[in-house]
Design a binder for these strands. Sequence first.
DNA 1: CGCAAACTTGATTTGAGTCAACTCCTGTGG
DNA 2: CCACAGGAGTTGACTCAAATCAAGTTTGCG
Lengths: 251, 251
Amino acid sequence: MGAYMPSGVPVLRDYRNPGDGAVPVRCTGCPIRDRAVCSLCSADELAKLDAIKSYRTYTHGAEIIGLGEDIEFVASIVTGVVKLTKTLADGRTQMVGLLFPGDFLGRAQTGPAEFDAVAANDVTLCCFSRTPFRRLMHETPNLEDRLLEMTMDELDSAREWMLLLGRKTAREKVASFVQMLWHRTGASQSDEGGEIALPLTRAEIAEYLGLTIETVSRQMTKLRGDAIIDFTSARNVRVLDMEALEEAAGS
Amino acid sequence: MGAYMPSGVPVLRDYRNPGDGAVPVRCTGCPIRDRAVCSLCSADELAKLDAIKSYRTYTHGAEIIGLGEDIEFVASIVTGVVKLTKTLADGRTQMVGLLFPGDFLGRAQTGPAEFDAVAANDVTLCCFSRTPFRRLMHETPNLEDRLLEMTMDELDSAREWMLLLGRKTAREKVASFVQMLWHRTGASQSDEGGEIALPLTRAEIAEYLGLTIETVSRQMTKLRGDAIIDFTSARNVRVLDMEALEEAAGS
DNA sequence: CGCAAACTTGATTTGAGTCAACTCCTGTGG
DNA sequence: CCACAGGAGTTGACTCAAATCAAGTTTGCG
């Protein structure tokens, strides 16, 4: 289970393992069937994918792909959260991607990875070797169409993230982060007051937002002081006032 | 011709109109044939694209796509430079894309634009109505494959840009910008000392880098003081020391 | 229970933003 | 052909938001 999940807290969000690390063997009943790269595939197309897939698990902190590695597989995130990061020579690190269940990891084309991919908590991947996947993609328009659509969605969200990094204040960044999690973890609109278990440490949130740990912490404290969010623990946020949160996020 | 080009200066880079705004009617001989979304297409595939294409021109500053518009076309940039920007409620704006000849503008899928697209100088587009383009894309794997590849390249470069926005200093940002232009404008390695005509104003460079005009100007002056770059005019840079520029860019 | 990692809080520094002139082009019209 | 208007760019003085440095406190795990 997610290393960050305090024991005894009820399961709230689906980026954690449903069940207990038990993973579907058949695609039918797969928890990400409706969102993943395979979501447009018909039953027989799915059977072909089924034949080339394999599951891999990574524990919290494990490196999935290292910078410059020539990755031999692509994958769908089944459970857990994967962070993509880029690092400058002197160690300054920026997160450049955060993948939730259903998201796709890797390029179908050849070439070395441009970033590190690390399991932010315990992760299960549904992996496809690159060559058979590419072949299947060419035979299966539904697969390629969905991958193109997902890649363009990623690009849109990268652009939103660029606006955040380039122009938002620390307060706006932190509020935007909570708001993003709220949406990505599949909260329903009526869920105000519901709890979000943060999948990232303060240090990782800082990497995501282009800030320092201290600034993230201070802004979290201020948002709590303004009665916009509350914490049941450092890793469990409750949104008290969704409208004020949107206001604070500047969007 | 590009409004920023001082008269009498020899043509240096291909993001300006080759010839005089004269545009190819046939795809053969198109200046972006080797790089654009159509680059993998065979002669007969190209003929089908040819049948649905049309050229549009925009003068410097013209809006190509407004935020929230449901764009009825997608396009390849033939000549000129297109900037994509996002703006917060109070007017803070961040550039989130910069498209050169060969780059692709728009989503094949449906849905409103997530950003503004503006002609940074005089621009020619090779446009395809969205519906026929989508249909053709489904019939033509070479087209969809290339679009997927280009979209993933865009995503990689957006992630590099995120590292810049989140973690680089003002000096590193400005140096990175010059370096990026050097590569995007197709300079050859042996071109040290060659000139780059900046396609953007200082204000636009600031939007690109998440800085203010003043900071961009100061850092340009410092890089000049360090004998890394030089200016023949405010809009024409010469790279004096490529190695030092890379060092200053922090990559 | 105790230790280390994660997180918070406070004091101080600093890099980039803001505000304010000023210069330099470039194009226009008398 | 020159004057001059206006936009683009530069430079300087000052401010401020976030980084840095430095203790603390809390939490969770062995």
